[in-house]
Amino acid sequence: MIKNNITISLLITTYNSPKFLDLVFRSIMQQTVMPNEIVIGDDGSTNETKKVIDSYRNKLVCKIEHIWQEDDGFQRCKILNKAIAKVSSDYILQLDGDVMLHPKFIEDHLTVIQPKQFVCGNRCFVLKSKTAKLINEPTNIKLNIFNIKKRKRFFRLPFLSGLFKNKRNNTSRKGNVGCHMAYWKNDMIKINGYNEDFVGWGYEDIEMVERLMNSGVKKRTLLLMALQYHLWHPKSSRASSQKNKKMYYDCKNQDLSYCEKGIKQYI
């Protein structure tokens, strides 16, 4: 569970998707290396989500923390800050609650941890028909290449991954997905975490990454290892995307490394 005395937390965001979250947990149970803790950042789900989380407390050797806030629309940045503040580990692997993990997901991440570095991983996409089968038959979570979109991302070839580690390192906007990131908790605290002025879908992850890079943290893009499978679901509303896009470019143009409304209010 610990590499060189580094402790690891899985941070999972969720909102009213208990069947998806159950699949996430099932894939965690198959990990070759377990995290020290799992922290669920819950943006206002009903009690069905709590039931799923509680059902795994005696199945996993690591502790599980459930951080819940009232449903007040899409407040992902706020629940992420609250959850990160509660993390007790040094290093955080951040996921969304609609993905499944390759059994060596955590093991692979452990091999690339470096000081003052954060990792942007990748994902392939599970077809709608296969997602429905996974939900209806959750005991069988095996996937094959025919269940997937973006099939090149289905293959785990860690000995080739290093060839891609610098890809997109000079730009923070491309290649960053909030459903698959890894970073040091202390690096996030220094930039004040996520900017809670971002409400609604869009640009909150890349704005955070922009500030993280401006603070001197280096980026590594991770391909062909730490595989992640994104379950199909309808897209979230893009109603806030233009407003959020402007805030991102304001951050980028001003070379900001800190936001005012962030994580420190919870620490």
Rank of each mutant, 00 (worst) to 15 (best):
Q31L: 13
P138Q: 06
P115G: 04
G73M: 09
V112G: 06
W201D: 11
T111A: 12
E65T: 14
I38R: 06
H66M: 05
D197A: 03
I206H: 03
V199D: 00
G178Q: 01
K167I: 15
T111D: 13
H102T: 10
W232H: 15
R173P: 02
G73K: 09
K218S: 11
I148R: 04
L11A: 11
K19F: 09
K152H: 10
N166G: 14
F25W: 05
I206A: 06
I189H: 02
L127F: 06
I67Q: 03
R123K: 10
K252I: 07
K150H: 11
W201R: 10
V217A: 03
D250R: 12
N214D: 00
H180E: 04
C259H: 08
T7M: 08
K174R: 15
T131C: 09
Y194K: 00
D96P: 03
N214M: 00
F164T: 11
T49P: 08
N140E: 10
L227H: 06
K3N: 08
R123G: 00
C259K: 06
L10T: 04
D71Q: 14
F155H: 09
N136K: 13
R123L: 09
Q114K: 14
I8H: 12
C77L: 07
L223T: 07
F125D: 13
S237E: 09
A132K: 15
I12H: 07
K167E: 11
Y183F: 14
F74S: 09
L101H: 10
I141M: 01
A182W: 00
L110D: 04
T171N: 15
